[in-house]
Design a binder for these strands. Structure first.
Length: 580
DNA sequence: GCCGTTTTCGGCCCGACTGTTTTCAGTCG
């Protein structure tokens, strides 16, 4: 899609304009770039169908940007952008990543020292050329050194699922402190973003000094950046930073709203405040000097004339309008989930063990502890030899084992059932690696791509379409194949996949494994818009992984999914009915 | 450059902190 390419260009144009001291235009370009990054329709398609006029229908796109898009689609470049680059031949995006330097400093550094990229900058600080510059100084130079150092060792953002257990531990430790009256995590963790930069925790404390001391001395803490009565910053042993912010009781709601973000959502809410003659900040909503709201988030939204917006929706992507009109979805919740259908019973370390029955019983017990009504065993199949995939014979044997365990549970009077499925392989030609007469005997069939992931768009689309058209295939696992920070999505026509899923009633998986989260929020929203049913599965390879469910639910919520969109909120009878 | 239940022109989010200044610009979240 040209969307991403254009988004990148518009972000860079915004940076260049900012360096050039142009005001307001950067804001306009960034807004469009942000929108295009995740825009559901291909701009090339929009232009083909409706020309410039259609482009201007896109929110944030006016005459100027529409012409820019047209020029790029026709010639592959935008003259305005090329001119800016020629005027200031810098690696802007690279330099902006250095903490402490922004557009203005970049311009000075280029004009006075000819610094064009990180390499030049590193050389300049080593030669102590920065400090003597007008408007700079010793401290600034030192900060740049630190910024460069951090950039070098910074491995990028952390996976939500990797940091969440630690965050919960810290919150629980803090909750036990008597002087803490209110506590919540904020930031992108609260919005359930798939990757996280750092953590913000908000508290109301009756004894800030005591709370601060307790926090910086937690066993998870490796290094303390700052300790104060309103803010403490630490780095954890795991490598990410946590800020504890202590706020006043009467501002807790507005502070939580502010620190939860997103930034774009905050800007939008503040603009609404302005139209009502009010001012919204992290301290509250003010009419003149008088605070009229701020104790709870609900108050903040209500005073703005909005219904309460769940944190997962706060991306300025339509939620404000929906809240104004009372059209917000009632999002699916973890407690709505009645079972998990993607569980492997052959954990890596026990791949060749003979106690299959015991392993399945353990998974079932874990699911019972989670108050599920059912669990589905879905091991890999024979094409994946390295994963000890089951062949037809193995699947039938497993079927008997599961039946036995179910009988045992029944005798014990436990109202819980183990369903039997598999995660079969979609081969290159779209066929399934297990015979249909065996697939038919299973309660359900998941099919997924596990090989030849780099095939071309048409081939891959045809391959998955053919699998969905197999009447025995109920669910497509991790539909796009992406691995966060590791691997891109398959090349495929996702719109086409969605259409065929709708036609065939195929369920698309929301895979809750932290590095997958596939479908992600964006694609979930596209699928929902088409009326496609989804299922949230953990793809667990050991029983502890069943707890990944919360991250899948988080993505579903980011994708505006409601209970009715997710089939594992159904009772087992209705679920099996659906598969039929 | 975009946009309009305040405007087709005149606006465009808010506050804290830092480091450089001597009242403030730049950066960050």
């Amino acid at each position: 899609m040209k969307n991403q390419e254009l988004a990148k260009i518009f972000f860079e144009i915004a940076d260049y304009l900012e360096i050039d001291g142009v005001s307001f235009k950067p804001y306009a370009y960034r807004k469009v770039a942000l929108l295009l990054e995740n825009y559901k329709e291909d701009v090339a398609e929009i232009y083909r169908n409706g020309g410039l006029k259609a482009l201007e229908e896109i929110p944030g796109v006016g005459e100027g940007i529409a012409k820019g898009i047209e020029e790029y689609l026709k010639t592959g470049r935008i003259k305005h952008f090329e001119d800016l680059k020629n005027k200031l031949p810098l690696k802007v995006d690279e330099l902006l990543k250095v903490e402490g330097i922004g557009p203005k400093k970049i311009k000075t550094l280029y004009q006075k020292l000819g610094i064009k990229d990180l390499k030049d900058l590193t050389k300049a600080v080593k030669a102590h050329k920065i400090a003597p510059l007008f408007g700079f100084g010793e401290k600034t130079e030192k900060n740049i050194v630190q910024g460069l150092e951090f950039l070098k060792q910074n491995k990028g953002r952390f996976l939500l699922g990797d940091i969440m257990p630690t965050v919960k531990e810290i919150i629980n430790s803090l909750k036990k402190q008597k002087e803490i009256k209110e506590i919540s995590v904020a930031g992108s963790v609260r919005r359930q973003k798939e990757t996280i930069g750092d953590i913000d925790i908000l508290v109301v404390s009756e004894n800030s000094k005591k709370t601060a001391d307790f926090f910086v001395n937690l066993p998870e803490v490796k290094k303390v950046w700052a300790e104060g009565l309103t803010k403490c910053s630490v780095r954890l042993k795991m490598g990410f930073d946590v800020d504890l912010r202590m706020v006043k009781k009467e501002s807790f709601g507005s502070a939580l709203q502010y620190f939860t973000g997103s930034k774009e959502h905050n800007i939008a809410t503040r603009k609404i405040a302005i139209t009502k003659g009010l001012k919204l900040s992290e301290y509250g909503i003010f009419k003149g000097n008088k605070q009229i709201a701020g104790k709870t988030e609900e108050d903040v939204y209500n005073v703005l004339g909005l219904s309460y917006i769940a944190p997962e929706l706060r991306e300025d992507d339509g939620e404000i309008k929906a809240a104004l009109n009372g059209f917000l979805p009632i999002l699916v919740e973890l407690k709505d989930i009645k079972g998990d259908l993607h569980c492997h019973s052959k954990p890596d370390e026990a791949r060749h063990s003979n106690n299959a029955e015991k392993l399945i019983e353990e998974i079932a017990q874990k699911a019972i502890d989670l108050e599920y009504e059912y669990i589905g065993i879905s091991d890999h199949t024979k094409f994946l030899k390295i994963d000890d995939g089951l062949d037809e014979k193995g699947l039938l044997k497993q079927h008997e084992i599961i039946e036995e365990i179910n009988n045992k549970l029944k005798k014990q009077g436990i109202k819980f059932i183990i369903l039997h499925g598999c995660e079969a392989n979609i081969l290159n030609d779209g066929s399934i690696d297990i015979k249909d007469e065996v697939l038919e005997k299973l309660d359900y069939v998941i099919a997924g791509v596990h090989s030849s992931m780099k095939m071309g768009q048409k081939e891959m689309t045809d391959r998955i379409v053919k699998a969905m058209q197999n009447p025995n295939v109920d669910i497509i696992s991790h539909p796009t194949g992406r691995l966060i920070n590791e691997r891109e999505e398959y090349q495929m026509d996702f719109e086409k996949i969605l259409e065929v899923a709708k036609e065939t009633g195929t369920v698309l998986e929301i895979n809750a494994t932290p590095k997958r989260l596939d479908l992600n929020g964006f694609n979930i929203r596209r699928a929902k818009a088409k009326g496609i049913k989804m299922i949230i599965n953990t793809d667990s390879h050991q029983k502890e992984h069943l707890s990944f469910m919360e991250y899948g639910v988080g993505q579903a919520r980011r994708g505006w999914a409601e209970k009715g969109d997710i089939i594992n909120t159904l009772s087992v009878e209705k679920l099996l009915d659906y598969f039929k």
